[in-house]
């Protein structure tokens, strides 16, 4: 029974990770700026978890020049990204995963 629960949990986590890894990483690996730097730019602008996630989701669903945190040089080079193909639930899961990986909470010594 315990094994079953453990397997279900692992499966659940791997599905989450899969959404983020499969849908976000591939594009960002092609860019000279790593994905973590985007996180810290968002953090610099939005401070709290809620504000950051809301801003990120809002941008991914409807990316515009006004909303991007991309520097001007990168904007000119890569342009504004296309609308996400993820549904709301998957998008939220991907952003949650993104937050959990790079958040500052609990990492300072």
């Amino acid at each position: 029974m315990v094994k079953k629960i453990l397997i279900i949990c692992l499966l659940h986590v791997s599905i989450f990770a899969a959404i983020y890894t499969q849908n976000c990483i591939p594009c960002h690996t092609k860019m000279p700026v790593k994905i973590d730097k985007f996180f810290y730019r968002y953090l610099l602008k939005y401070s709290s978890e809620e504000n950051l996630k809301n801003a990120l989701i809002s941008y991914l669903k409807n990316p515009t020049k006004e909303k991007t945190i991309l520097q001007e040089g990168l904007q000119n080079r890569f342009g504004v990204k296309k609308n996400t193909i993820l549904n709301d639930e998957d998008l939220k899961k991907a952003v949650d995963e993104y937050w959990d990986i790079y958040k500052v909470f609990g990492k300072l010594k």
Binding site: Y46, S47, S48, E49, E50, N51, V104, F105, L108
Partner: peptide, 9 residues
């Protein structure tokens, strides 16, 4: 502290 008054460190 962040903008929601949550302690970061």
């Amino acid at each position: 502290y962040d903008s929601s008054y949550k302690k970061i460190f």
